[in-house]
Simulated scan of single mutants.
Amino acid sequence: MSTVLITGGHSGIGLAAAQALAGKKIDLVLAGRSPDRMGQVAGELRAEYGVGVTSLALDLSSLASVRAAAVRLRDMLGSGEVASLDAIACNAGGRFDGEVSPSSDGYERTFATNCLGHFLLVQLALPYLSEHGRVVYTSSSTHDPDSTDGRLVGAVVEPDAVALAGNGKGGLQALSAGKRYSTSKLCTVMYAYELDRRLRTAGSSISSIAFDPGSVPETGFLRGMPKPVRWISASAAMKWVMKRIGAVTSDAEFSGASLAALLTSPDYADVSGKYFQANDGKLSAVRSAQLSYDERRAAKLWDDTKHLVGLAADEEPILLR
C-alpha cells in the first residue's frame, strides 16, 4: 500500500488532500506542529476510511525540529510502522503579518517556514522515497509579479536566500508581509524546478512538481488578519470580485483533490518539472513566473539554502551531490 507524507495535512487544503487520498486507500503521515489536532484527524481518517495514519511532530520554522522529524520518519520506516514512502507534499506554510519576527534559528519566519524547513525535509527524506516517488511543492500565484495575485499581495523581490533569511536585521528596512510571502512562494517554485533538474541529471525516476492551489480564503491562510477582513475575504461577493479581476480562485475541496491527484494519480506520472494550477474548478499545467525559470538564480538559491540549513555532507542525498 502507498504512503504519502503531507505537511499541514490536518487542516485546510492539506486536510482535504488527506481525505481524498484516504478515500483511495492510501496510508498517510500527517506532519505538523499541532499534535492534538493531528491525533484527532488521524483517528477520524482511520475510522472512516480504514487506512493507516501516523502523526509526525514537525515545526518547519525550526531546523532542529525538521531533523528530529526526519529521524523519526526513518525509524518508522525501519520498524514497519510506516510501510513505505511514496510521495511528499510540501504543503504547510504561512503568511506572518506585522513586524518581522525571527525563527528559533534566527531567520525571518516566513522564509524559514515556507522555504528552509521544506528544503531540509526533502533533503533528509529523499533517500527513503520510493523509486518512482513524487515531491509536490505547494506554491501560490502570488509568486508571479505579472499576475493579479502578485500585484495584490506585493511584487516579489530578488530570490536571494541569504537576504531573505536575514530580512529586517541590521537596521535595514524590512519587506512587507506580502512581499515576504510572495517571494517565498517564488523560491518554492524554483526549488521544485531545481530539484527536477538535479534528479534528471542523476537519472532518477522521482518527480518534482510545483502546485498552485489558488486563493482559498476559507483556510487558515488569513488567520492572522482581523475577523472582518477574514469574513469579507471568504464572502461570495468577494470571490466574485476576485474572479472578475483575474485572480486565481478555488476551494479547499477541489484544491485538496488536485494536490492528491498530483501526488498519486497515474495521470501525473510524467510531469516532473511542471507547474500546475487549480483555478475555478480546473487543474491545468500553466507557465509560472518568468523569473522562476532562471537556472542560474535557482542554482544559487539552492546552494545558499544548503548553507543556511547547515546541510552536512552525509545529510545530502547521494543522487543530488
Rank of each mutant, 00 (worst) to 15 (best):
S2W: 03
T3R: 00
T7S: 12
G9W: 01
G9E: 01
I13K: 01
A20Y: 04
A22P: 01
A22I: 02
I26Y: 09
D27L: 09
D27K: 09
L30T: 10
L30F: 14
A31S: 11
S34Q: 15
M38H: 04
M38T: 10
Q40V: 11
A42H: 09
E44I: 06
R46P: 02
Y49R: 05
G50A: 07
V51H: 09
V53T: 08
T54H: 13
D59L: 01
L60W: 02
S61C: 10
A64E: 13
S65K: 04
R67Y: 10
L73Y: 03
R74D: 12
D75Q: 15
L77C: 13
G78Q: 06
G80M: 06
V82I: 13
L85V: 05
A87S: 09
A89D: 03
A89Y: 00
N91F: 03
V100E: 02
V100R: 04
S103D: 08
Y107W: 06
E108D: 14
F111N: 02
N114E: 08
C115S: 09
L120S: 04
L120G: 02
P127R: 11
L129I: 07
R134C: 10
V136C: 12
V136S: 14
V136M: 13
T138C: 15
S141I: 04
T142M: 06
H143V: 09
D144C: 06
T148G: 01
G150K: 00
G150C: 08
G154Y: 05
V156D: 00
V157S: 02
P159M: 06
A163P: 03
L164E: 04
L164I: 07
L164Q: 05
N167Y: 01
K169E: 13
K169H: 08
K169C: 09
G171T: 03
G171Q: 07
L172N: 13
A174G: 03
L175V: 07
S176D: 12
S182D: 05
C187P: 02
Y193D: 10
L195W: 13
R198H: 09
L199I: 05
R200S: 13
T201R: 14
A202E: 08
S204Y: 00
S207M: 05
I209F: 03
D212V: 09
V216M: 05
L222M: 15
L222D: 14
P226Y: 08
K227L: 15
K227T: 15
P228H: 10
V229Y: 11
V229R: 08
V229D: 11
V229C: 12
R230N: 11
S235T: 09
A236E: 06
M242T: 08
K243N: 11
K243Q: 11
A247C: 14
T249E: 02
S255C: 07
G256P: 02
A257P: 03
A257N: 08
L259W: 02
A260C: 09
A261W: 06
P266N: 10
D267Q: 14
Y268W: 12
A269H: 07
A269D: 12
K274M: 13
N279F: 04
D280G: 11
K282T: 15
L283Y: 08
S284Y: 10
A289W: 01
Q290T: 15
Q290N: 15
E295Y: 14
E295Q: 15
A298K: 03
D303W: 05
D304H: 04
T305L: 01
L308G: 00
L308N: 00
V309C: 05
E315M: 03
P317S: 12
L319H: 09
